[in-house]
């Protein structure tokens, strides 16, 4: 694997995470329990899609095949996506959506903090921009997880169920492969595994405030960030997200 192949892979991973999660979160638009939450979810989705344009734009540049961020978002099929499985699991109820957001935001904020020191100044610039937004996402999702976890009997039960359901998807964010090793060597990105300690400390503190129990299992579903095996849900998501470009190839707004 060449340096550029590894770099493009890394950028697809960053951009596909924000794209797929951004799309998932946008599915709430018009459906959230109260107007303020609807607006908050739509704004979070918007930030993530905005970040996607920067990551996938750079991915296209590094690939050097003349592909734009839009080409990469709309003209690839499931097996070419490199997002972690956590981002593609269905929304479930409001509690599960916010728990997924929290588990991702915590990783995202730590990752972007490291990427701000990247040896590649384009990566550092995107990370600097995105980290301001993600700090805000994390503040909100953490607050909501605590509010609902340490809330009523019903909300507590649902949040614990959400955590139990999503926990097996957490481990994939910290897995490393050949492309990651290449990124570490080039000083472009950290080894994913090196984020785990900080992540565990952060989520343990919040989940403990939320009176929730982290499942005692280290089993991790994987295959998303390598593209080896996505869940069945990604294909369904793409049929909706890519519908227009599939039905009318090359259509412009």
């Amino acid at each position: 694997m060449t340096r550029d192949d590894a770099f493009a892979q890394f950028l697809l991973r960053m951009g596909d995470n924000t794209l797929i999660l951004g799309h998932r979160v946008s599915e709430w638009c018009g459906h959230a329990p109260v107007l303020e939450e609807d607006i908050a979810l739509a704004n979070t989705a918007l930030d993530l899609i905005g970040q996607t344009q920067m990551w996938l734009g750079l991915a296209g540049e590094v690939q050097g095949e003349g592909k734009s961020a839009d080409d990469l978002a709309f003209l690839r099929d499931a097996w070419d996506f490199r997002n972690v499985l956590l981002c593609e699991v269905p929304n479930g109820d409001f509690g599960r959506t916010l728990m997924r957001q929290f588990l991702f935001d915590a990783w995202h904020s730590i990752q972007l903090g490291r990427l701000m020191k990247s040896s590649d100044e384009r990566v550092a610039a995107i990370a600097e921009k995105a980290s301001k937004e993600v700090a805000y996402h994390l503040e909100r999702s953490a607050d909501t997880v605590v509010g609902l976890g340490d809330g009523t009997e019903e909300s507590h039960r649902r949040m614990q169920e959400a955590l139990d359901y999503l926990w097996p998807y957490v481990g994939e964010m910290f897995q490393s492969d050949e492309a990651d090793a290449e990124m570490v060597k080039a000083g472009i990105a950290p080894d994913p595994a090196s984020l785990r300690e900080e992540y565990d400390a952060l989520i343990s503190r919040i989940l403990s405030d939320a009176t929730l129990t982290i499942p005692d299992s280290s089993f991790a579903h994987k295959g998303g960030r390598t593209g080896a095996m996505h869940t069945e849900h990604l294909g369904h998501l793409l049929t909706q997200m890519q519908w227009l470009q599939r039905a009318y190839p090359g259509a412009k707004w």
Binding site: L46, D47, L48, G50, Q51, M54, K129, E133
Partner: peptide, 8 residues
Amino acid sequence: TPTYSGCP
């Protein structure tokens, strides 16, 4: 410079 990266 954009205010927010997704600002429409």
